[in-house]
Nucleic acid binder design. Structure first.
Lengths: 191, 191
DNA sequence: CGATTCTTTGAAAACAGTCAATCTGTGTGG
DNA sequence: CCACACAGATTGACTGTTTTCAAAGAATCG
């Protein structure tokens, strides 16, 4: 399970075997069943988690009980509620598994320590943060300028591997569109 | 003009006078008239700019000629097209002044150098990045879960100082709502 | 197979966008 | 000082899209 993170860190940041050992010491392996929570509303997010297998989502519960998906994450992605993780405040969101999954959890203090002693890992972290931010901006642009149909196509084109493994109503919740509308959009596209 | 940035850095990051001198050496003062561009589509964003006076926006031009505002920035905010800034690729966005403004521009290389030699400044940068990301996530959540009316109220409550100095059609463009709809929402609220 | 979970479909209602006209305030040049 | 242009805001009528509600049809899993 750790080998997947090791391969990732080697490729993305060129870490040495010695540095990888530092990671292995602090990684906590965890398996999640489908529908199992990694984080519940009100919890504090103490860990940053690397996904070696499966798919998770972070969502917010609306007042009327509807779930609004803020992000998906699959193999080789990191996930945490970063607002809670960074500030130490209770999370307003939930994270759960959409498939049986395997993750490696790293405590924030350990993660920060690794960043401070492995320059290449800090660089990787900064790069990933920048990419996340860019992705957010692109999503916002799509939200404020695209039709429901355009949003759907942008998503499937940007993340074909993710879109193809998710049920339609999850994508609808991510896009901010009703299932019915998305079903109609998809049907229209078949013709 | 520089004193405003100096006061900001002293308060937010506790920089010493010596460190502030390093900033002063690399800051480029610039005045912008209302409607003047700081960055045009296709340009590469080489600078990160600190606003000492005024208000700017970053927007994307749609195919049909409509402008979609990605962000506003006022006094004590930083602005740049970070996608272009970080990657060195041509910008897809424009930045212009909504009021007569004054900014301090710092070249990316100088900025990066300051981060590398002033630990407290790196910490501030990381904090600001994290806050930007959180703000993006909150905006996305609002985009996918709120009605036009809720979006408007969230914006005015979150940024009352910004909302009150902007024309209505700019806010509409930021929220992804037509001017007419926003005008009706506001009118309804007056009653 | 029985029970979820997920998807589709139809009809009505709510919502937001478009188009066009008008109104307002501001500032500029004659 | 006035006339005019201009940017911005509002309003009404209409159109189009999306949501909602309800029901039924697939698909999946234990």
């Amino acid at each position: 399970m750790f080998e997947i993170l090791a391969a990732y860190l080697k490729e993305k940041a060129g870490l040495t075997d010695q540095e990888l050992n530092l990671f292995q010491e602090v990684c906590i392996e965890k398996k999640l069943r489908k529908r199992q929570y990694l984080l519940q509303e009100g919890d504090i997010s103490h860990y940053n988690s690397f996904i070696t297998k499966g798919c998770l989502r972070m969502y917010r519960m609306g007042k009327d009980g509807t779930e609004h998906i803020l992000r998906f994450a699959v193999e080789n992605w990191w996930i945490s509620d970063y607002e809670s993780y960074n500030s130490g405040s209770p999370s307003k969101n939930c994270i759960d598994a959409l498939e049986d999954s395997e993750i490696l959890m790293i405590k924030k203090e350990d993660f920060d320590h690794l960043i401070s002693i492995i320059p290449n890992f800090r660089i990787l972290r900064d790069l990933l943060n920048a990419r996340s931010f860019d992705a957010s901006q692109n999503r916002i642009l799509s939200n404020i300028s695209d039709t429901a149909e355009d949003k759907y196509h942008l998503f499937t084109q940007s993340y074909p591997d993710i879109a193809s493994r998710l049920p339609l109503h999850m994508i609808a919740s991510f896009l901010g569109v009703s299932r019915e509308t998305l079903s109609r959009i998809r049907h229209k596209y078949v013709k």
